[in-house]
């Protein structure tokens, strides 16, 4: 930030006492005897009166509204079962598709092994998940490839207001979709896909942390021999 360097927050570990003075325990934390502790490895963030621990690892836990990339693993007469890369398999009801699927006709539309883009519409208390593909932006994915990254890294891949993805697209021209469940679909010309996949791997492996955007930009500028048109992002560490 301008002038004052932001406070460097360290990695917290389960059991760490958090400075939650006047704050309520948020996600990734717990309250014991009136104090707030970290429940998982992560970094601390405060917002709207809550103290949260933003995870650095862990499996994808479905939330309503998330758009995910799923894989059909089984089917019934009026539904499919979808692996959404989480502890919970998610049924997709035939009614939640753009198609008029007759009873017993599900395999005319989606087969085991097919990869789909869908939305999580509900998750109940027992973590029963409902998916929908009804909106026209969803459907079966064909061509391209799916890369897996840690679901905890998805926000970094997207970047501030989508800046990281925009940067990757600007150079590589790939079509790309980032599922909240850590599955990334990309397609494009081989060179573009090669560089995009490389960048995605770098982000997943995390590398030296400060200036990840700079690092990615430098890689892409070198790979393509031209400068980025998007202005260099102001990193929070005050380097720009």
């Amino acid at each position: 930030m301008d002038g004052s360097a932001p406070e460097r927050r360290e990695v917290v570990i389960p059991g760490d006492l958090l400075n939650g003075h006047g704050l309520k325990p948020g996600s990734g934390t717990f309250n014991e005897g009136g104090r707030i502790y970290a429940a998982r490895v992560g970094i601390v963030a405060e917002r709207e009166g809550f103290v949260d621990v933003i995870p650095l690892s862990g499996r994808y836990i479905p939330r309503p509204g998330d758009v995910i990339i799923g894989k059909i693993t089984d089917l019934g007469p009026s539904h499919w079962l979808v692996d959404i890369n989480s502890p919970y398999p998610a049924p997709l009801n035939a009614k939640e598709t753009p198609w008029m699927v007759e009873f017993g006709d599900t395999d005319r539309y989606l087969r085991v092994g097919d990869v789909i883009l869908a939305e999580i519409v509900s998750v109940d208390e027992a973590m029963r998940v409902q998916l929908s593909m009804a909106d026209r932006q969803f459907g079966r994915l064909t061509g391209g490839q799916v890369l897996d990254i840690s679901p905890a890294k998805v926000p970094r891949l997207i970047g501030r207001d989508g800046s990281m993805v925009a940067l990757i697209r600007e150079f590589t021209n790939v079509r790309m979709f980032v599922g909240q469940n850590g599955r990334i679909w990309i397609d494009g010309d081989p060179e573009g896909v090669h560089h995009a996949a490389h960048v995605i791997k770098v982000i997943d492996a995390s590398g030296p942390a400060p200036g990840l955007t700079d690092q990615v930009r430098a890689y892409l500028e070198a790979a393509y021999g031209r400068r980025a048109t998007t202005p260099a992002e102001r990193d929070d560490d005050g380097r720009h």
Partner: peptide, 8 residues
């Protein structure tokens, strides 16, 4: 951690 902090 540091990079994730910016996201946070």
């Amino acid at each position: 951690a540091e990079a994730a902090q910016r996201e946070a």
